[in-house]
Design a protein around this nucleic acid. Sequence first.
DNA 1: GCGATCAGAT
DNA 2: CACATCTGATCGC
Length: 481
Amino acid sequence: MPTGTPDNSFIHPYPIRVDDFSDISSTREPAKLYLLTHTHTDHLNGLASRSFGGRVVCSHDAKEMLLRHEVYSERALREMNLRAENSKTFRHLRVEPRKTEDGNVSYVGSRDLLVPHALHTPTEVYLSDKQSVTITLFDANHCPGAVMYLVEGDKGAVLHTGDFRAEPWFLESLARNAFLQRYLATPPASVGTIPGSNGCGGTHTDVVQTLDAIYLDTACLLDTIDVPTKADATSGLVTLMSLLPVTTLFFINAWTWGYEDILKAIAQAFRSKIHVDRYKHSIYSSIYADPFLRSIITKDAGSTRFHACERFDHCEFVKVDGQGDKPPYAAATANANSSMNTQGKHVVYVNPVTMGTAAWKLYLEETRQKLQHGERVNGLLIPLSRHSPLPELRAFVSLFRPKRVVPNTLDPALKGLDGACMQRMFEGCLAPDVTPASSHDTIGTANLDAGDLAAALLKDETEPGDVALKNIEGDGALVLA
DNA sequence: GCGATCAGAT
DNA sequence: CACATCTGATCGC
């Protein structure tokens, strides 16, 4: 539960919570089932609690990552040999049966709360004796193990995106996915309306269905500019890297899960493995959905120019003056040796940033010029976004035209303005019968500026707090104040 | 004294 | 830089 998730992270109307495992027993009925979209720590709230005892559905890879999860401080202790064994934050979720003194196996106290599901495999899950839902997982293009959930039951169908990046190839892949086709607003390869398919027949209403809701990754809801595709970002970076001397060492600041595309693109382009620390190695080795990732990593620091080892504890090959993950960008203040390792080799830092498509083109051209003129460059940027900005979100929602769209997170600082804006932001992307009659299809033509919208609402609204209250009341439906 | 929660920095 | 993470302060049981 990243802060700002409406309705305690329940997906209405089912007794299912997503990415939130905190204790709410004093407020309402506990969830019958929990879904975990991925293992970033802000989605694991309450899961470290020893008293948590719910069933948690997740992907196979998320389960492996979770059981191997180690916080940084524990990793550092392990590195200094102050820890004989790795301390794993979520190990209590799986307690193996133990051997008793007489050699038998005791299941007393054993349990395994993490229920892994394969992708694209509809599975019936019981919420009670009388109620069940069918759950299907789809890769979310966010980080290893990250998935979206389709939940179908007698109370309707909802799609929960978790955190995701809905770039064009991702939409095309969804549009062709047999487990989602019945919910598509428009068949992939057809334009316009098929004669006789207007839903007037009455006997075939179950052929095409409408999602009741999409629970949407709204981390970048207010970003209204286009951002580069991951492929454009990595290919640009690799081009710049290839302009540096072959003696250059690189530190790739993959500071959280989700930057693996950078490692893979580098390995591919330079035909080289990437040095990773013990912890990353153990995680990446357990990612079965990505055998290529597993194949490009090495623990041998001296065997490669490319390093993605601990962010705050680089190996000696990429250690330079002024530790930490900050490259000495400022040419004015950086001393000449500040980007040299102990052997005098040049170390270049690669940092993921947020950058629009236009800014990226400019940066690529400028940096190319610098490198070709032999100017010293100690850091390279790569605009690898792991969340979709508004244009991608609108395209994604338009693919399904659900009855409503619910934000996975709201920014508490905006006091509900972002939620209030959302209704307007997805005008024309929802099911026709619930879209206000006056609205037009604004896909591709809308010139919505979220900042302006928020500002306008702020002006009109003397008590912004009211918006927040109206916004999250009841079943989590958005109510425009 | 522990855990949950938040502010703040990176 | 980054919307994920860590640290340290504060509050409540």
